[in-house]
Amino acid sequence: MNAREIILEVAHLFGGYEEQEVLKDISMSVCRGEILVIVGRSGCGKSTLMRYLLGLSKPWSGAVHFEGEDIWGESMDVLRRSRARWGVLFQSGALLGSLTLLENITLVLNEFTNLSLKEMELVALRKLETVGLADFARSYPLEVSGGMQKRAGLARAMALDPEVLFFDEPSAGLDPVTSSELDHLIRSINRTMGTTMVIVTHELASILAIADRVIMLDGESRGIIAEGTVRQLQVESSDRRVTAFFGRESLNASGVTSDVNGSE
């Protein structure tokens, strides 16, 4: 990770809900092409931070820069242009239930490109193939399993070849095997397409499998308590909260076990 280009940067961000401050003086950055994992216990503000990264809410103070531009700058234009280059996978996949998997993707393409129907379907099929769902193109979301819905959501998030992909708890509600398949998929997309990934999770197995770099949030101090590679956090950190999180795994540092279920 030597002096790579910073694509997304957060500077001294404060935020929360109404009276309740959730994030306090957060500064962090995401480098192009890396997989950054944001971890922390439930309720510590991971999803809230994600909302700020995506520009879904405006921070109380501080700034979020995408490629050097403030997404809350003078005009909303920056945010709109940035969003066209982002993809998001929501927790449940958030597919439209009345459309087939294929149509869920062509819907996005139809909105943002001027492709013909045939071209849109080719792109959509290609994306479904990438996530291993080409045979289910004509199925409706309710007709496929939860893991497949997640993968289809991922295919839709990738429809426009985004430069940054955001995931909020991608493995929530999935069994360990399906969840590790999704991890492999994320890893391989990152390798082949060079997509930058920002992933919120509390699944230790996922973190070990995919993270290039980890940022750990803490609910009490409402800030970042640790940052670095998995190795650094596992071995070098002396913070009690960090060792508690990675603790159980440090006994077998190989990092390929899939029977660990995170911090809760």
Binding site: K118, E119, M120, L122, V123, A159
Partner: peptide, 11 residues
């Protein structure tokens, strides 16, 4: 090329 552009070229 990205996938969208590729589909245009393919067509």
């Amino acid at each position: 090329m990205d996938t969208v552009a590729a589909s245009g070229i393919y067509e």
